[in-house]
């Protein structure tokens, strides 16, 4: 907004909780998480399926289904506005304009009965006062920007005439249409095969370098994180359990869950017969344990882990690396033990 924009984060999320009503009771899927996104930064949200990554993104855009979902936050600040308190109509002006989103499933995320050109034009039409001709011209530029071959002749074709990778390019073109400040990319390469994944990732990297946009990149693929992210937030069962710069995180994974995730990545430079997998599964929303949600699967768990959820502690100086763990955080365990006994 102001000249100090370089220092101010583009997006600041504070104490975001997203709950769902299951069997008449509200269960949080995202539990009071806070993070901020700097200009031109890529923040990766990492974690297993069902840990709340996608819900975080949908909550920011106000796309959580209202029938059985509820979003609460201290604030979600974007361009001086608090998105968590914005009326529907104001929120609509932000979606696809200031913040846009790329979804996981390119096969089903495009409308099958509308031409792709039209779907890109639509992203422009409600935010920018463009004439029909101008809109189509800009949409064509966008399709060329995301490297769709012979975009002009394919402008009026329908999604079923495109491959998965090409459809994801169309999705990206739609997301970029209004030159958003923030892109929320929800596992944009998961549904694609490996060579196409690499193409899409390098495309996203190029586009980010050319514009000043920031990106929240949701993935469970640590290889993608290493290639793309500036900073990483590891999520588990609705909590951010560790957040750090990408190099710091790969050099010093601190939370036992982060560590376990890294051990689960298949490596071609080591001769291993079996791939490590974390025992157990993420607890279901309706049966969240009382203490640290990872305790039941954690090799390091001690008594206090099972009764109290640890706070997110800053490690060392600089405040860039935080972790939510009784054992690995800055805690005086003896003191903790005393408190627990009381």
């Amino acid at each position: 907004m102001t000249e100090t924009g370089k220092i101010e984060p583009v997006l600041d999320v504070s104490n975001l909780t997203t709950s769902f009503r299951i069997g008449g009771e509200w269960h949080p899927a995202v539990r009071g998480i806070s993070f901020s996104l700097q200009p031109n930064e890529t923040l990766a949200l990492v974690g297993e399926s069902g840990c709340g990554k996608s819900m975080t993104a949908l909550s920011i855009l106000g796309l959580v289904p209202k029938a059985n979902g509820r979003v609460e936050a201290e604030h979600i600040r974007f361009q001086g506005k608090d998105l968590s308190r914005l009326p529907d109509d104001e929120m609509r002006k932000i979606r696809g304009n200031g913040i846009s989103m790329i979804f996981q499933e390119p096969m089903t995320s495009l409308n099958p009965v509308l031409p792709i050109g039209f779907q890109v034009v639509e992203a422009l039409r409600y935010h920018q006062k463009l004439s029909r001709g101008e809109g189509e011209k800009r949409a064509l530029e966008l399709l060329e920007l995301v490297k769709i071959p012979s975009a002009k002749s394919r402008f009026k074709e329908y999604p079923h005439q495109f491959s998965g990778g090409m459809r994801q390019r169309v999705m990206i073109a739609m997301a970029l249409a209004c030159r958003p400040k923030v892109i929320l990319a929800d596992e944009p390469t998961t549904a694609l095969d490996v060579t196409i994944q690499a193409q899409i990732l390098s495309l996203l990297n190029e586009l980010k370098a050319e514009t000043d946009m920031s990106m929240i990149f949701i993935t469970h693929n640590l290889g993608v994180v290493a290639a793309l992210a500036d900073r990483v937030a590891v999520m588990y069962a609705g909590d951010i359990v560790e957040i750090a710069g990408v190099n710091e995180l790969f050099a010093r994974p601190t939370h036992p869950y982060t560590e376990a995730l890294m051990r689960s990545v298949p490596r071609s430079d080591r001769d291993t017969k079996t791939l490590y997998s974390i025992p157990g599964a993420v607890p279901p929303l309706t049966r969240m344990p009382q203490g640290c949600r990872f305790a039941a699967r954690c090799e390091l768990a001690i008594d206090v882990c099972r009764t109290q959820n640890p706070p997110l502690d800053v490690l060392g100086s600089g405040g860039a690396h935080s972790v939510r763990c009784w054992v690995r955080g800055n805690h005086d365990l003896a003191e903790m033990k005393e408190n627990a006994d009381v």
Partner: peptide, 16 residues
């Protein structure tokens, strides 16, 4: 369907 979510994410008015 997913494409409805996509349309909302683009900022298309609810009526449309």
């Amino acid at each position: 369907e997913d494409y409805i979510r996509t349309a909302r994410a683009k900022g298309v008015p609810e009526r449309v």
